[in-house]
Amino acid sequence: MDSIVMEVKGITKKYRDHAALDNVSLKLEKGKIYGFIGQNGAGKTTLIRLITGLAFPTSGEIYLWGKTGDAQLQQQRKRIGSLIESPALYPYMTAYQNMEVQRIQKGIPDKSIIDKTLELVGLSDTGKKKVRNFSLGMRQRLGIAIALLNAPEFLILDEPINGLDPVGIKEVRNLIKKLNKEYGMTILISSHILEELYNTATDFVIIDKGRIVEEISEDELNEKCKQHIEIKTPSSEKAIMVLQQKLSTDNFKVMPDGTIQLYDFLDDLEKVAGALAEDKILVTGLSITGDSLEDYFLGKIGGAAK
């Protein structure tokens, strides 16, 4: 059961008549980095707030490491680190003092964890500088440091790269990958920067209008987005023989509807068309296709909106 870090079953969250989440079910497996994708107001932060106990669902159940119920969830939340929207910091304190408040309230006995964590996020040299004098990027890093303070098994980062410069974004990305690889930390990151999520996540959850539209792994996503020649024909078996015998390729896939996705000859569509025509195979569609990531996500979100 520990392989499932978090599960929600039929979660609905209503604010008056508006359903911010509508019958959402989702499982997050241990050791993966989940990219949580959705437009503003799609329900990302609402779901994160339910998981972290900041809000209560109207209906449905939340499980953390297989445990449910208020008391059990509270207990399990000690294994979570979170940064939700902008970091909650005391402006009149230093980075160290902010971390110290969190260390005390989280009941972590080892004080040295503060220096180690500040070093991990590149804030070890801030000394007596008050947080009110920090840049947006420094505050964001300190927020991440606070989330990491209790060495969480499950890290939730809501828009963690907001305000970071390109170097900072790269550092956070490398940090997330390191935490995942070295400590097996399960990570849920929501961001509207799709390119960055693609570079970081191993799995993606797409949410729109309070509903999960799709859960997809990085490999599946790559597969779906891969450029290919799409051959539509009522005689797919004959077409396969032509591809194998005349064009000497096995680099294709037959989809359940009989459409063939050919990954070779992308720069020589005429050769494929000619080979099929020679054997008098009726072709109803022949085109090079494949989405960019952005197109794919927008297609999914647009599709859900229809």
Partner: peptide, 14 residues
């Protein structure tokens, strides 16, 4: 307002 209390809740405190 600054979501400090929210941090206490999210850390698993009753």
């Amino acid at each position: 307002d600054q979501r400090m209390l929210q941090g206490y809740v999210a850390s698993g405190n009753k």
